[in-house]
Design a protein around this nucleic acid. Structure first.
Lengths: 202, 202
DNA sequence: GTCTATAAGCCGATAGAC
DNA sequence: GTCTATCGGCTTATAGAC
């Protein structure tokens, strides 16, 4: 029911993701978002109350996928499989949710001023869990001793970069958009470094 | 001579780096920059003409250091040494010029709308040169065959992340600021992955 | 629920005194 | 060269008709 409501909210959210990703929160205009959604500006306020609220919803939409990408991190798991699945999942997010990914990155870059405290808490807890898993595997001799915190930073950065710095990637590769095969090479390249660095032979 | 002019320009540039890094171009206020510099707002306009101009100067200030970090890329060089020096130089930039680094990253994230065409050209040329060097070494059998473009993306992302996502890094490590030893671990960790992945044993 | 027309406030930029 | 005081435009947000 209320299909119009759901449809319009979805249209606005999609337009907002693109606009916030392209310009950042402050530079984005609700006017432009409305035009992009094919609706008059007051509808944006009717459905989302304020620009900030709309931004927060875009931000919230990327949190679950990001947390879900860490699902493979299980102390019982095999490092090789866990890292492979994690990198693959994170690159997939950069590919399939590029706008929200970029909004999230921009938010983190500026110190997460709009990110709800409970979301910060969940993200932080997840990061600590992943790092603890890595440390556990190192202690058990299942992988080479490498600093798990800095390993996570590199994993995060190297996968996220396909969304965040897509302009740079397009410029260097000469392709406006990477295709399926390009993303496969990306995953393989990151995994070659990570698995070799962790002493996990193919 | 004109030491006041130089001093005031420097004060404003420093304050602007911090403000632009913290808030982004659009959200940054010239008022706040002026206050941070300990000068009245019109001085900012007197010395820099416009907010955009000031921003461009901050941006330009990081380009030379970034290009200089690629200096080790020489076809005659040893991959192991070149990569080590590059990673070390890029991490040093993230540490020593964190604000300008972040401004640069934010600019790239948004498609480089303010970056002068000649600077874009130089950065692009440098990236292609680095990639060509890597490909040359691979062809000569001096390093393992890995996609050089994607390797550069990971190098860029993993070193840049120490400036761009300092908030995340502080949260996870529990340290407001990393110290000398932390940055050394960062470099070592990135190099462990990169050198192992490139088949370049210690 | 939808949209036109407008209010309210903020911020970049400058005029003009010193 | 420096700064106070102010303008003018732009954008968020809403009132109120439909």
């Amino acid at each position: 029911m209320s299909s119009i409501r759901e449809r319009n909210r979805a249209l606005i959210l999609r337009a907002a993701s693109e606009e916030f990703a392209a310009k950042g929160f402050a530079a984005a205009k609700t006017q432009t978002i409305a035009e992009h959604a094919g609706l008059p500006k007051p509808n944006v306020y009717y459905y989302f109350k304020s620009k900030e609220n709309l931004y927060r919803e875009v931000l919230a939409s990327i949190i679950e996928p990001i947390l879900a990408a860490s699902a493979p991190f299980d102390p019982q798991g095999e490092p090789r499989e866990v890292l492979s699945q994690y990198v693959r999942a994170k690159v997939r997010i950069s590919r399939e949710l590029p706008h929200a990914s970029k909004v999230f990155a921009s938010e983190i870059m500026h110190g997460a001023p709009h990110l709800a405290a409970d979301l910060v808490e969940r993200l932080d807890r997840q990061a600590r869990h992943n790092i603890a898993c890595l440390q556990g595997w190192i202690d058990q001799g299942k992988m080479a001793p490498i600093d798990p915190q800095h390993l996570m930073f590199t994993l995060w950065a190297s996968t996220q970069t396909y969304a965040d710095f897509d302009w740079q990637i397009s410029t260097v590769t000469g392709k406006p958009k990477l295709d399926e095969a390009d993303y496969e090479v990306a995953v393989k390249t990151i995994l070659t470094l990570v698995l070799a660095g962790c002493g996990l032979p193919a």
